[in-house]
Design a protein around this nucleic acid. Structure first.
Lengths: 222, 222
DNA sequence: CAACTATTCTACATATTTATTGAATAGATA
DNA sequence: TATCTATTCAATAAATATGTAGAATAGTTG
């Protein structure tokens, strides 16, 4: 091969990053890791794939510097390398959700499937919480809440919800969030709550979306 | 294949976007198109590739909704579909330039190759222009300047520079910019100017980088 | 309407990516 | 030190991506 120009070499290197996120399973891995660090085995369960394949995908992400590893006893714990990874993936999603009609249709189907009538965004949450008293609950696993959550949110993991209904108010609107727009936990939560006659609605955005919005605001204030 | 869940289908669709930018030549195409719309033939010359291959790459970008087409006489003119494309590519580059050591090294080599001593960023430009009088020149082809440029910049395409030296001041610092960090036009310009005893330095950022910074600021003011 | 031109398509060879399986490894634990 | 366990590696087959060369096409121009 002829000697590539430096410009071409830079594009080649950059393509290692884009190549790493060009696979759906690897995007899913990044999304799970955005919530909290996990071991290979846990991740393989989350994305429904063999441990060996999961490990290989994780190595691709690692060689592109998108994730870091750390040993913890017998486990190798993978984590997101940098907030710039979240920002990049968020930019991809914003584009996809806006431009790819098929994604719109899939999300609409998803909501129909789940009998979902109402759901709000982060902005809506802000507006609503100014007008009325609301209770914000985080229905992700407790470890994900501990790794980071929206300020003011109370952790009530979906698995515990049924037994902790007495902690919830009937006179306030309950807003439930989970991992984000493609996650079903908050949907399942509000379904249960509505059955039990609570006024509950789902917020589509999660902690990661909140965090990205914060850094955006922080940057602009400088 | 078993029916994929809606979540998996969304990731599949999203991967069409990431897949489109996973090839170095296609990233290069996006970068060229970020400056100005171009025909297939012009683009094939810019990225140094056959017309047929260029056309195929462009079709991948089009099917991922990253670019649009428009007929103009005998030509098909490709253009960037949306500012969200620029934002996404910018996020990829920010990550790459920050995390991939090899890219740092390549850029350093690039500057050494070009005997480049000093170069400034957009922020530096702002600071410097507050302290002293500077002249900002855009050395890209005139059509790219016409498609959009940094306010206050004067268009002096590299090809015309030699003949238009009388338009330039000897008592002000001249700051030259072109397409961005990987573009050589501004470097060639300041080399010529320095030979002719002008005080000239290169700005690495270009119009696209400026535009992205603007929308960032605009967003935060809301 | 014929000729032309820029672009796209087709067929092909080669290279890369992916998931699967089972073996190998590194490090912790007993 | 031996055993155990989570992870990684290696080999394979199938699928997908890539570049090339030449043919086909759509739309413009004369």
């Amino acid at each position: 091969m002829a000697a590539a120009s430096i410009k071409e070499q830079v594009y080649q290197e950059l393509s290692r990053v884009t190549n790493a996120i060009s696979n759906p399973k690897r995007m899913e891995l990044i999304d799970v890791l955005s919530q909290k660090s996990y071991s290979v085995e846990e991740l393989s369960r989350e994305i429904d794939m063999s441990v060996a394949s999961t490990s290989q995908h994780l190595q691709v992400l690692k060689s592109a510097k998108l994730v870091d590893t750390q040993r913890q006893g017998n486990f190798i714990i993978y984590s997101i390398a940098d907030d710039s990874v979240l920002k990049m993936v968020s930019a991809v999603k914003e584009l996809g959700f806006r431009k790819i009609a098929e994604i719109d249709r899939l999300i609409a189907d998803f909501k129909t499937d789940k009998n979902l009538l109402e759901s709000i965004s982060l902005e809506d949450l802000l507006l609503r919480s100014k007008k009325e008293k609301v209770m914000l609950i985080d229905v992700r696993p407790g470890e994900e809440y501990n790794a980071g959550h929206i300020p003011g949110a109370v952790s009530i993991p979906l698995a515990q919800l049924k037994k902790r209904l007495d902690e919830l108010p009937k006179n306030k609107t309950i807003i439930a969030y989970c991992r984000g727009p493609l996650c079903v936990m908050a949907i399942d939560a509000i379904k249960l709550l509505n059955q039990k006659k609570f006024k509950a609605i789902r917020m589509e955005d999660g902690y990661v979306e909140w965090k990205l919005k914060q850094t955006e605001i922080g940057k602009s204030k400088r």
